[in-house]
Amino acid sequence: MLDIPVTTVEQGVSDAEVAAANAQPGTTPPKRFGFFFWCCLGWLALIALVAIFAGMLHLDPPNAPYYTPIAVNAPPSFAHWLGTDDSSRDVLSRLVYGARVSLVIGLLGTAIGIGIGGSLGMFSAYVRGKIDAGLSFVMYIFLAFPAIIAVLCILEFWGHTESHIVVILGLFSVPFIYRVTRAATLACATKEYVTAARSQGATARRVLAKDIFPNVIPALIAYTVFTFGGIITTEGALGFLGQSVQIPISSWGNMIGEASGDLNATLVFILAPASALFLTLVALNYAGEQIRLRFDTSEQKL
């Protein structure tokens, strides 16, 4: 037995009419974000606050060794909640300051990606025609190109600074955001009110700003969140390969990479940054998915 909702296919018009007739205003229960969604936001808020106010937490300096020979690879203790690493640095402190690096790279990279990819996507879908085809083709090539190769080369030759990582990861997220924004814009640009606005001679900028942008925002928010997660993951991978910010500066990725290469490291050193990263990615992806589902009418009926 296939357990799927009953569907009867009607002629388009009549179905909408029937649905409208049956949908008494106000009686449909509004779709709410569930408990887990708020947990995710809570976690994100927590790590954001911790990263912002890291300086006020009275932690040991994250990058300076603690110069006590006994503290090398020390297990968790009251003084060092997560222990110390092979250079006697406080792991909790490195985790907190690492959050700063990961989050800042994620945030700024996303800003670049959304800024460029989002506006190009909307523009492309709005003008259609040759420009659209050309842009889409270029983006398609970038999507096909294994970004990691270019990223590794460029970082090696430019230097592994935070700003380079931000710019490069941001730029390489452009094609992805371009594609989804373009699709979302196309979907709403064909709606009646937009066509009407265009036919009444509204300027392109006005139509984009007044009619299209507000309707693309929900999709854009969701994909902003996904991109954020994607960039943090990529930064983590680079860090793991030792190709992100350089030791002694910590990011979650390079902490995992460093600890996994050190046979004396205890499990906590891997587990702590790995869990932080995993929970953050769960929070981002879940929240993004909920936002997308909530605003995407085409999937709501599933």
């Binding site: 037995m1 357990d3 799927i4 909702p5 009953v6 009867t8 009607e10 009549s14 179905d15 029937v18």
Partner: peptide
């Protein structure tokens, strides 16, 4: 008219409805 239940009736006669939800 459309929406009067003709499709649901003919499928009900046949038993061609999903088990859950109906």
């Amino acid at each position: 008219e459309s929406g009067s239940g003709k499709t649901v009736l003919s499928r009900s006669i046949m038993g061609l409805l999903p088990g859950r939800g109906t």
